[in-house]
């Protein structure tokens, strides 16, 4: 206990970012749902429609930020949940790196998808 206090930077910064991304996600997730289920029915989605939306810089930027923040919020949430279950030591480290890699892969793949949806490439 008293011997090994870790620095603030680990727990506190992640805690703060989890909340900040939450604020952003509340708005964007609601917007995303309304736009793609109520304004445009999910069944009527076509590639041309997607392309038209994604080719607007503002929309593209919002969606990309949505991807990054959601990935952080989700992956960090999973990590917290596992740590709270009492995950420790090398197992904890293994899970941490696995989640970081999974998150990075998701962001990379998501970015590729997002670029493919534009008429830029």
């Amino acid at each position: 206990m008293a011997e090994h206090y870790s620095s603030f930077e680990r727990g506190g910064r992640r805690w703060l970012f989890q909340r900040l991304t939450a604020v952003f996600l509340i708005g964007v997730l609601a917007f995303h749902f309304v736009l793609l289920h109520f304004v445009n029915h999910a069944a009527d989605i076509t590639f041309l429609g997607t392309q038209a939306r994604m080719s607007q810089v503002g929309y593209f930027a919002t969606m990309w930020l949505f991807l990054v923040t959601a990935t952080f919020h989700g992956v960090n949430g999973v990590y917290n949940a596992l740590v709270n279950q009492g995950l420790t030591g090398s197992q904890k480290n293994a899970v941490k790196y696995l989640l970081v890699v999974a998150g990075l892969l998701l962001v990379v793949q998501g970015t590729r998808v997002a670029l493919a949806m534009t008429n830029l490439v």
Partner: peptide, 12 residues
Amino acid sequence: LRIIEQEHGVWR
């Protein structure tokens, strides 16, 4: 504050 803000402090 350093004690309570360690990983097993308030953040849990």
